[in-house]
């Protein structure tokens, strides 16, 4: 998949994942793999820069918490602007996917 497309997609997937549940890094990457049926294997090298970038943009906030097996882990949750962003990006994505689908079918 093209990288720039990937970045937008990754943002959207992270927002979507966190909309359901507050998660730590590993949890997010597992969750994404799960909901995309393994299509997206998010590597830490992409995941962490994306998380930090979105946090700096004010869409996410982070806090230290306990993981399932009692380890300290950093959790991320959606902020109010983050929810708004999710809505915007979802709409955008749907518009694009419809447009792309019809474009590809039209031949």
């Amino acid at each position: 998949m093209a990288t720039n497309l990937l970045q937008g997609t990754l943002d959207l997937l992270i927002l979507k994942t966190l909309a359901l549940q507050e998660l730590h890094g590993l949890g997010i990457s597992h969750r994404i793999a799960q909901i995309t049926q393994g299509t997206f294997q998010v590597k830490p090298g992409s995941l962490f820069p994306a998380l930090h970038r979105m946090e700096e943009s004010g869409w996410l906030e982070s806090y230290w918490g306990e993981s399932e097996n009692n380890r300290r882990a950093k959790y991320y949750r959606l902020t109010v602007p983050g929810r708004a962003q999710l809505a915007t990006e979802t709409d955008e994505w749907q518009r694009i996917s419809i447009a792309m689908a019809s474009a590809l079918e039209s031949t």
């Binding site: 730590h24 890094g25 590993l26 930090h52 097996n69 380890r71 300290r72 882990a73 950093k74």
Partner: peptide, 11 residues
Amino acid sequence: LDEELRAYLEQ
């Protein structure tokens, strides 16, 4: 950042 990554690695 260091702690976050270490935690990730341990998980």
